[in-house]
Design a protein around this nucleic acid. Sequence first.
RNA 1: GGGCUAUUAGCUCAGUUGGUUAGAGCGCUUCCUUGACAUGGAAGAGGUCAGUGGUUCGAAUCCACUAUAGCCCACCA
Length: 906
Amino acid sequence: MDKRYDAKAAEAKWYPIWEKNGYFHDEPGHGSPYSVVIPPPNVTGILHMGHALNQTIQDVLVRWRRMCGFNTLWLPGTDHAGIATQNVVEKALKKEGKRRQDLGREAFVARVWEWKKQYGGTIVHQQRMLGNTTDWQRERFTLDEGCSKAVAKVFCQLYNEGLIYKGNYIVNWCPRCGTALANDEVEHEANHGHLWYVRYPVVGSEKGVRGEPYKDYVMVATTRPETLPGDTAVAVNPSDERYAHLVGKTVILPLTGREIPVISDVYVEKAFGTGIVKITPAHDPNDFLVGKRHGLEEINIMTDDAHMNELAGEKYCGMDRFECRKALVDDLEAGGFLDHVEDYDNQVGHCYRCHEVVESRLSKQWFVKMKPLAEPAIAAVKSGEVRFVPERWSKIYFNWMENIQDWCISRQLWWGHRIPAYYVRGNSSEEGAGNSEQVFVAETAEAALEMAKAKTGNVNLTLADLEQDPDVLDTWFSSWLWPFSTLGWPEKTADLDYYYPTTDLVTAQDIIFFWVARMMMAGIHFMGKPPFKNIVIHGIVRDAQGRKMSKSLGNSLDPLELIDAYSADALRFSLALITSLDCDTKVDKSKFEIGRNFCTKIWNAARFLEMNREATPQAEFGAASGPVQLSSDERHMLMACEKACEKVNDLLAKYRIQDGALAVYDFFWTQICDWYVEYAKDAPDKPTAFAILRDVFWKALRLLHPYMPFVTEEVAHQLGFLKDGETILRAEFPKGYTAEEKAAWGLDEEVYEYVEAKREMITALRALRAEYKVNPAAWVKVTIAAKDAATAERLSSEVASLKAAFRAESVEVLPGASELAMPGSLGRIGTVYLSLEGLVDKAAEAKRVAAELAKTQGFIKSIDAKLGNENFMAHAPAAIVEGQKTKRAELVAKIAQLEKLAKLFA
RNA sequence: GGGCUAUUAGCUCAGUUGGUUAGAGCGCUUCCUUGACAUGGAAGAGGUCAGUGGUUCGAAUCCACUAUAGCCCACCA
């Protein structure tokens, strides 16, 4: 074996072998299924730390289940990401001086496909660098043929069920992207703006000539004066006595002369501004609702790109909205309508994609009625059929689901699933919308044509007479079908039958609403079963200061750079180790040294084994070797291995990835390397000691494999645990030893505890050496005062290995305490004395003993207090009481010895 | 405004139904390079578990309030 582990070589070597041999691929049928669908990253995406964390967790779970014998499927794929992808291509076009309109829809979409073909594989390639065992043979894309078919079918079914409707609605509109945005696609940011106080003259008042201040007016406060031409009322709170007399009257809309009513609505806050609000139903979501309640006219005064239209008035028509704001304010002031201006900070919505200020805009959009879909999805979590891990996320899920709003699913883009709604030409979508008689919703144009013929009675209609709705569907309209569309739905496939519902869904908290909740609804509605059994939510990766990683902050770590610097195994292991499901994870570069160092440790330990190959019998260690007389250290090693296997399996079953990593780390490093390897070097029966070492090492490699796939595969082959053509990926995950093996080797808690206690003694002696500045390499004389005769006998039988562990030229074991003029240190099974032959600093030792004595006496006191407490004796469990008593007895013995020592140093 | 979470060693975090003297990694101090490993080994210092009150024989753990920090949802024109 090479002196250094070459991670890059191992990664480059093994991944292609795994993939080529189909190790990630199972066919439905045999065994129990364990299936997971990957949260599909945007096809435009590049791998970031969030992916690395999310996918590491999934790969750990999948590899573990696979090794446990499950029939596993981890289904990969990408999302077509409507706006994001279209933006990327539009940017490229811009460099050529073109807009998408110059190409036309068909050519533009072709261009996006071209882009996808060329660059869309980036993230898919990068995922391989992580070592993911996603089944690439089943890779899907949300816009591929199968997924598109599913989308069309779902749309039609929901439409026919009356759950999809087209409606006039106020939506968040990005003027730059030219599309509606979902509420969650709008990011609110603090804005330093103004509050303009504007006078609206009351009709019927005698005073008031244009150009002069009106005496009788209502004062309205607004942050958006440019929408004034769209006002169709002013409103006050019904309980506001100040203005009760105004309700029902009419006021004049400044600059326009139009008369609008004063209405009352609970939406108005009495305390804000003047307590009077202008109502602009076409340009504000709240005003829109007020308008609906009061039957107000909706006047849209802007164009799609946020310029004023002719309804804004001749003067402002064509102006940009912010330009118009200025002009209009100037005019208000000139007209004497502007009372005063205040500074005002509020939140303004921005497009999550291009950051343009979002406009509330009235438009016709397609919606999904969510309430009927949400109800069974709530029930599935309430009943426990689907479980959130950690459980508390279910509260957030309920909170959202119970207040769910209809989902605006149309987007004015070209890249995406086009809405399968058709109109007979001449009845354009604008005119025809809202009149369902003229909309034909069908999975194909041909089917729509048949419907049109039947409905209109015009048998001469051809496809050319049909016009498809120009809008495409929200990206999430395909992702919410992901758990079954990717398995072949709506076809009845073997995959769908076998792998649905999937087992676990692993994702971050930020898409619980976007994605998880909607998948729940779609799964239940179309498949009759929730799409997964467990929803595993992990935290977000943050930088060292706790900030979200983002491009604009420049605080992102690049997983590929980390893989380059530390190796994929290091990245994976460190992420697993520092990640808690319960909270976000703070990460900085130094964290990955843990993983890298661990890799090195594994490699070096493997080299040690390799160097001692000749000391190891060829035959593997196992029950077949029959009853053997094993030393206590060997039995302890096997017990530790047993415990580690049990622990790791148990923790992974509870999705405690972090604790599992810690458990296997500690097992390998502390138990195997720090203790057992040192023991094995001087073991009385080397062949047996090394046979055991090989056995536990091979188990440890398999325990580690889900976390560190490359180094474990490489080492397993180097050490001959696997032959060419075999893989650790499909080796059995260790389950611990059988009852027969345990009996044959005398594995029990007692021997485990005994060795633990013995190690305390070894540690104590090392501490003594350090305290008296005895060279760690020097050979010393050691005396042990054993707790009792039996322990003395037991210790005597292992003097050889104790000598090695203590680095002692002699070890004398005496039953019970004795008068020894040496420094000593107490453990559970006795006191270990170090002969210093005159090196002892009596004063220092006396101090140390006194301190120990005081501490011990203090502890006894606290135990006595407990044992003397009637309530404690009455209520505490018997085991606790017994434990306290035993502890006390030990401490009393310890005090006796310490007192003897104290006298010696006095 | 509604909801959720956190506060434990200098730093990042464990601590699973309340139960022996609260743990790990990093960092820090001291010591150690003759063949697994200095990306290492050994020893050590460091915490009144945010605060107050309550429940209990017993609280880092359960409850209430307070303080601080963070996240999500809805947002006042």
